[in-house]
């Protein structure tokens, strides 16, 4: 019934088959099919990531409702400046990543490599700042576990801070559990992303991605932006909501 349509499709296919670009993998008929499959696969993967983080966001939502005061107090101990700088760093890294994709599209190898390296640098900067923040939490005994102390919340040294009743102060541990679980999982995604970026740089230096086939770069860009967006949700939820100073 739709044989004419099929015939034209096949005509195209055969024309393509003769001009096999090296990057067209054998099991795809056309470059377009390969590109679409890769991008669709990436979006599906990001969907699984949404579900992965979703579990923790759900927990955050519930506990924030139950232990509002503890969440406010916990949130106030975070360093908003470091958080803001990190947000800026991450947004910049998204920009450089987007520029990397653009460079690949324009087939500019040098600028592609530059932007990828810039992205790595910004990613590392983010992790570095995060490490500083984590170290501070260790010093203040705000890491959940045996060394956790509620002293800071019951008798705050900061005059602006609201003192919590001891039972509510205990619940800041739930806040910090989620803080470390969420930012930790996010940082893990950053580390994985940076590792992949390193591979991409090496391959880009060898001339890959700037010869018309750039779906790897494009899809990695999606991943990087996704990790960025997760932070865009984490930042207000963990740092900004109900701040009093």
């Amino acid at each position: 019934m739709d044989s004419p349509a099929i015939a034209t499709v096949n005509g195209e296919m055969q024309a393509e088959a003769h001009a096999h670009p090296a990057y067209l993998r054998h099991h795809f008929e056309t470059v377009e099919q390969q590109r679409e499959a890769a991008s669709f696969g990436m979006w599906l993967f990001l969907l699984t990531e949404v579900m992965f983080f979703g579990g923790m966001f759900m927990a955050y939502l519930i506990y924030r409702n139950w232990y509002h005061a503890a969440f406010v107090a916990g949130s106030n101990t975070l360093n908003i400046w470091l958080g803001t700088i990190n947000t800026a760093v991450l947004i910049c890294s998204s920009f450089t990543m987007a520029m990397a994709v653009y460079s690949a599209e324009k087939r500019r190898r040098k600028s592609l490599v530059t932007y990828l390296i810039l992205t790595i640098v910004l990613g590392l900067a983010f992790l570095g700042i995060k490490a500083v923040e984590y170290a501070e939490k260790f010093e203040l005994h705000q890491v959940p576990g045996a060394s956790f102390s509620i002293e800071q919340f019951v008798h705050p040294t900061d005059p602006k801070a609201v003192a919590l009743a001891p039972d509510m102060a205990e619940k800041t541990q739930v806040y910090f559990s989620l803080y470390f679980a969420m930012t930790g999982m996010h940082a893990l995604h950053m580390i994985i992303g940076i590792s992949i970026l390193l591979i991409l740089v090496v391959r880009a230096l060898g001339g890959a991605y700037t010869e018309g086939h750039m779906s790897t770069i494009e899809n990695f860009g999606l991943y990087w932006h996704f990790v960025d967006i997760v932070w865009i949700f984490l930042f207000p939820l963990l740092y900004l909501i109900s701040r009093y100073r």
Binding site: A165, P166, D167, M168
Partner: peptide, 20 residues
């Protein structure tokens, strides 16, 4: 008794200690 600060009745100060 365990989480008194979350159950403070209107008109009372939240001074009860926890017995957790």
């Amino acid at each position: 008794i365990l989480n008194p600060s979350q159950h403070v009745p209107a008109g009372y100060a939240p001074i009860m200690p926890t017995y957790q």
